[in-house]
Nucleic acid binder design. Structure first.
Lengths: 143, 143
DNA sequence: GCAATATACTTGATTAGTCAAGTATATTGC
DNA sequence: GCAATATACTTGACTAATCAAGTATATTGC
């Protein structure tokens, strides 16, 4: 197998894996009314300084567009899981802030998320997982 | 970092990488009027015995639903890139067959695809790529 | 200071996929 | 042989994202 074909195979495998991950997370998080992407949002907010991020930063972190983040956040705002906060220095910016209800839901749904994560990436492969992490970080740092 | 958090980080990195891959492929393949998923379809068909696959098999290989594959194939059929073929033993089955125009487009667009692939996974990381491939195959075999 | 350019976000239109239901047909178990 | 169940595919309705255009505001360069 040539390096080119291998690269392509890997990319196809990644695409397939992603569908598996998404489906698994969606299924396990649905009891909490969250999708995989919803969970990612809560996760990033929960790990951000002050539990808040600029919308554009959140969108970038997730690899989606500005309008994508607007759309995805709308129902979460409606449910009171996240809120908005203006930036005193830049009127263009609207922060997304994790609301108490959102933080609680994040914590509660962590169990379902970890169940899904372990279904896809069993902890029995801890060593290889460390390698995978390094590889991914390296790849992403290039992109 | 606990193993659980690492697993979650990896999964988030995978999700991000997938958006990078999709965007890169979409951008580079657009000159040929193909999306990343369109290219995947042509690729699998081109590598299948007789250049044909059952729709349900194609859908499974790509990790999408039966209706998803119906939708995705519709424009490709319209463009004459793929065709249909009945199965003489099973009236439920409708094969997807790669048409000559589809095969040609696949070959022509391979350059753009490989450009995108190498942008995301530079060949300079050949060694690590082999590891990545093994890891992915192993993960997918579990899922 | 001001026009040109860039940035952050939203909105209307569109694209691309899933879900649920439906149709047709094959398989299973009695 | 036949009803129950499973499989393959399509379709209508819906969800979820992107694109393009728009609004507001900040930055840049003269």
């Amino acid at each position: 197998m040539s390096a080119q074909n291998r690269t392509l195979s890997i990319i196809l495998a990644l695409a397939k894996l992603q569908t598996v991950v998404t489906r698994k997370f969606d299924a396990n998080l649905s009891v909490h009314g969250l999708s995989f992407n919803d969970f990612i949002i809560l996760h990033y907010l929960s790990n951000a300084p002050g539990n808040k991020l600029r919308r554009i930063d959140l969108a970038e972190q997730m690899g989606i567009t500005a309008s994508g983040i607007t759309r995805t956040l709308a129902p979460l705002e409606k449910r009171g899981l996240v809120g908005r906060e203006a930036n005193e220095h830049d009127a263009r910016v609207s922060y997304v802030v994790l609301a108490p209800a959102g933080e609680e839901l994040y914590n509660v749904s962590m169990k379902a998320a970890m169940y899904a994560a372990n279904a896809v990436l069993p902890v029995s492969k801890t060593k290889k997982i460390v390698q995978l992490e390094e590889l991914l970080l390296e790849i992403l740092s290039v992109s």
